[in-house]
């Protein structure tokens, strides 16, 4: 069900870890939904020189995190802010439809890290928003 690119990134995720002296950190998702992504960025002269991630989640969550870090490195802050979840998924040759919604949040995590660097307050309700699904637990 996953593309070869997703599998490749899942098996060899790039840029896993933390940046101790990061100047921007962003987290999205929550454990309830089954996905948490945390992005660390290092910005020098307006260029993103290093990105690292830590992710709790399914294969798609790990692969999109990895891909997003690859896409972001070397970009200016403005360029990186343009990166969308959709673009990350496309760079992985797509994701299964069910995963587009729930595990495709890496660009959001990156955006949060950049906003954190820029000193912009982000709305943390995001932490709990992203699936207002019906809880038909019985």
């Amino acid at each position: 069900m996953y593309s070869d690119k997703v599998m490749e990134h899942f098996q060899n995720p790039r840029n896993v870890g933390e940046i101790p002296d990061a100047n921007g950190v962003g987290t999205v998702g929550n454990a309830k939904c089954g996905d948490i992504m945390k992005m660390f960025i290092k910005v020098e002269d307006n260029i993103i020189t290093d990105v690292k991630f830590k992710t709790f989640g399914c294969g798609a969550a790990i692969a999109t995190s990895s891909m997003a870090t690859e896409l972001a490195v070397g970009k200016t802050v403005e360029e990186a802010l343009e990166l969308t979840n959709k673009a990350v998924a496309e760079a992985l040759d797509g994701l299964p439809p069910a995963k587009m919604h729930c595990s495709n949040l890496a660009a959001d995590a990156l955006k949060k890290a950049i906003n954190n660097y820029l000193g912009i307050e982000t709305d943390d309700s995001d932490e709990v928003h992203h699936h207002h699904h019906e809880h038909d637990e019985f």
Binding site: F10, G34, F56, G57, C58, G59, A61, I62
Partner: peptide
């Protein structure tokens, strides 16, 4: 601390 699908994969 880890998720089931990634374990299965």
């Amino acid at each position: 601390y880890i998720e089931g699908e990634s374990i299965l994969m």
